[in-house]
Design a protein around this nucleic acid. Structure first.
Lengths: 341, 341
DNA sequence: CTGTTAGCGCGTTCAG
DNA sequence: CTGAACGCGCTAACAG
């Protein structure tokens, strides 16, 4: 009927719940109920209001809504990086578990910097999130304090090798390293080399190394050579450090800090005419797609990053309140024999 | 002095600006000014208040702040996926440009689904973002309408081959395709093959194909064979479709929908003993790191995804108000000769 | 089934 | 330099 349509093209249209209520000749609460699909409303009123909502192009203001209900339905997520594909994979799991809920993820990237992380956590907390997912256990004292005091659920993702503030979802990297070495020893390898990247930023790589070393030591063995690059892992670094390793010593098998590095190792061997695994066996970590598409599938350990993100969200949705004692969810890992070791 | 510290361990601590004001014996406005670093406050008062802020662990509530100031400083970002590494790269650019500002990115993933995108845009808009970054030009009519009416700045990222709602930041994929074919023709290739993935989800791949076909046609040539996979691009698909292509027809050069696919092609050739580029030349798109670490660097076109995200944010920060006419920022591309074609 | 009354926690005038 | 009043847009009781 009324062909009212006075939205001015310029500024942000200021259509509020009150405006919809006035035009539909009902109270604000009624419109609110209808928008939230909650409480009883007659079909006639609902239709009338929804028609007006459509006509005005009304979009509820969740900022006001959250303030009134003291509930933001926001989920803060902090990851160290997006260039390492494992973190986007975690985020995909988070996203999958969040679909069909009315939660929104607020994602921040710390660049592997604990101070930066502290800043991010502070500004996320300012948005009153319902929960926070964060990577790892290494935080500044201030971050830890904020997280503890916030009272919201906090999930520390990726590994389960420390005691969490509230909840941890991940796998044991120490045990994965241990299993790697046991596996390779069982396959007959004795002269072990290690190719790695910066352990300061990537504490989990160090945990795996420690686990390996323990297994080697128990078998009366040890790494006979190591080649460590500076900075984050990459195919390029894996390739370069493999060249260095091969120039340094004679090893049967090279264990890599992760699959990116290991793929670089395979590329070096392809390039240098080194036969894999006969002359040099190669073992990675993560089970990335790229490793499985190489001419020979990469031998590695499969971790399930997607699952970590997904489980973390599910745990939070299931139990929105912090329990008395820390919770640990182990998503496990799996040795993949492959063809390179 | 006062050793008051009555935070109850359970529920979300309810420390508000009012509480800080009362304890510091000043007005709320004063605390507000101090927290926002705005307006004049005596050093003594500031010190006293900040001390109390620290003691209580007060974190300002940005939901309330945004409601009062009608300004959220939130930036909505919608990307189709995180599994295709190009989008995390865009997000890194966004993140880099956002650092040192007090904007927060709210990232959502549409899974290449326009209807899903519509839902995401609606819920992002509900958070009253200062601007929205979205991927591509293909939106539902409802999405387009919401975006137009929102009045906030809208950046459509990745390509510049259509007219934007407000602003576009990206490169011309049509011209990139055209340049690819010209380049390869100049290098003497005549029998062209194409290896691609689903064009419905990835319209930009189709634009590149169209550009290539135009250049081929102008030179009196055309693709002599094509192998198209279903679904998203991947190394595995590139490898499988290359096998199919080789079984189908004899071509000099295979052009791939992107580098993931092309790396699969290289792997197939490595595996099948096909010499690259002598028996088969391979050309990709994107300039991903992985392609550059292959035994022979992949011939490709470099697009700059990081730059797209960065420029998009810079443009928004520079001009928070929507101009009268659409703006286009071309981040360009570059042919990388490489060693595979 | 619907309306009324109070705020949510803060920023923004405007006085002083 | 500081404070008081008001309201941002909505939800949460409670009446009717």
């Amino acid at each position: 009927m009324s062909k009212t349509r006075q939205r001015l093209p310029g500024r942000k249209s200021k259509i509020t719940l009150r405006e919809v209520a006035r035009r539909a000749d009902v109270s604000e609460s009624t419109v609110s109920r209808i928008m939230r699909n909650q409480g009883l409303v007659s079909d006639a009123t609902r239709a009338k209001v929804l028609e007006m909502v459509r006509e005005l192009g009304y979009v509820p203001n969740r900022i006001a809504g959250s303030l009134a209900s003291l509930d933001s339905n926001l989920l803060g997520v902090v990851v160290p990086s997006l260039s390492n594909i494992v973190f986007p994979e975690v985020l995909q799991g988070v996203n999958a578990a969040l679909k069909a809920t009315n939660f929104q993820a607020v994602i921040s990237i710390s660049d592997y910097d604990a101070t930066q992380e502290e800043t991010l956590v502070r500004s996320i907390l300012a948005w009153q999130p319902s929960a926070i997912l964060i990577t790892g256990f290494e935080h500044t004292p201030a971050t830890r304090r904020m997280l503890e005091q916030s009272g919201v659920r906090v999930v520390e993702m990726m590994d389960v090798d420390s005691t969490p503030i509230d909840m941890a979802v991940g796998m044991s990297h120490r045990r994965a390293g241990y299993a790697t070495a046991r596996h390779l020893i069982a396959r007959g390898y004795r002269r072990f080399g290690y190719v790695g990247h910066d352990w300061v930023a990537d504490r989990r790589a160090k945990l795996r190394y420690d686990g390996m070393q323990q297994a080697l030591s128990e078998a009366g063995l040890s790494f006979v050579a190591q080649a460590m690059g500076d900075g984050h892992s990459s195919v390029a670094m894996g390739r370069a450090q493999t060249a260095r390793l091969c120039a340094t010593a004679q090893v049967d098998v090279a264990v890599y800090s992760n699959d990116d590095m290991a793929v670089g190792g395979v590329f070096h061997c392809l390039h240098a005419g080194i036969s894999v695994p006969d002359q040099l066996a190669i073992f990675g970590f993560n089970g990335l797609d790229i490793g499985q598409e190489l001419p020979q599938p990469l031998s590695t350990i499969r971790s399930n990053r997607f699952l970590i993100g997904q489980r973390a969200v599910e745990a939070i949705l299931t139990a929105p309140d912090r329990p008395h004692a820390p919770v640990v969810i182990d998503t496990g890992f799996e040795i993949f024999t492959g063809a390179t070791a």
